[in-house]
Design a protein around this nucleic acid. Sequence first.
DNA 1: TATAATCGAGAACAATCGTTCTTTATTATT
DNA 2: AATAATAAAGAACGATTGTTCTCGATTATA
Lengths: 207, 207
Amino acid sequence: MQPLDILPYLGKLQDYYARERIVPSMTRLSLLWNVKARSWTHRIVQRLKEEHFLENAPGGRVRPGPRFFERTVGPMVRAGLPQQAADMQPELLRIDDYLIENPSQTILFPVKGDSMIDLGILEGDMVIIERANTASVGQVILAIVDNEFTLKVLARDKDGYYLEARNGRRNQDYPPIRPEQKLEIYGAYVGLIRKTRVPGHHLNASR
Amino acid sequence: MQPLDILPYLGKLQDYYARERIVPSMTRLSLLWNVKARSWTHRIVQRLKEEHFLENAPGGRVRPGPRFFERTVGPMVRAGLPQQAADMQPELLRIDDYLIENPSQTILFPVKGDSMIDLGILEGDMVIIERANTASVGQVILAIVDNEFTLKVLARDKDGYYLEARNGRRNQDYPPIRPEQKLEIYGAYVGLIRKTRVPGHHLNASR
DNA sequence: TATAATCGAGAACAATCGTTCTTTATTATT
DNA sequence: AATAATAAAGAACGATTGTTCTCGATTATA
């Protein structure tokens, strides 16, 4: 461990960040930490940076680093019990972070039908589509065919590009789609979210 | 719609925030938005605050507001192109709010194996589990069997409760699991997220 | 005890910050 | 064509920023 015990400072900052979702300035950090000198606060911050609890952000500002959201693991952890609980906890934005890379280019589309069931895309799911005009063969894309959106696999043979479904059991119901003239690609399938719970219905509604 | 079209500005800021996880200063926002005057940037920021895309943070700084993480939801069945829908305001959805109802009781678990493939749960997906000690027959639950987590369907016959897989093609590989003594339920399957993009790999890497 | 390292405070600095005010272009409306 | 509203830029303000330097107090080590 470091000579300077930075963990109490880190704890206070973590609590503050959970409240305000921002790393404050040196002056406000000094107030939060009961440190009189901004220079000393500055030094503590640098220690926290060295330990990757904090890191530099553009504009000389500071943001949480990779270790900032680590949770201290208690001593009584049963074997096999949720280690996973540590990595993702209170940050509500993390799922969003995980799934969405370019927010302005990303749109959700509810799925109708079972034409892509072999890829685990079910009716009622929401597919995450990132806008793109091009794609490569084998990719799952959202295309516009006859003024309707269709989620299919982009394929190609000697006659050109076409769209394939992925439903092995009802293959005859989903023949390949060959566009009359042009194949308009709207975006690429980059992820999926599914909510199985009935809205408003709570599982443990014992109250 | 607002007189000043703030959505393009919002989009750029959202992308920036996805990268840097910080709302920059006015000066840097001006650079990002190609606005010459900091005063004009200031005004756009205030519009975004009025619409609750941004909000004030301690120290005169700015942080994302409640609507910052909303995603647009596109139409799936409706005929017509999205440009036609320009007049009607698009539906917005926050992924986290949509999926998670009780954050403190919710944990993500990565999926191993294909035993639940018939329900569209694939290896590599993240299932959303809400803690619960009880469940009803037919529900998908995360149970603890032999100190390991297992995602299965809760079933019951004359001999008592047991766990079923859902893989029609390899049924013989996943026989029903009958606990020796007690069946420990960890939580209920309430949703799923899937990221198909390879992390760090951009689809349109044409540079 | 002597000495070095660390802890903590204060002062000072240029740079940047958010904000406000004024002025000029552009657009829409009458 | 006249008028109003909006979009955009520029200048300037004091306040706050991150950083560095210096100097006493405390602690550990030799």
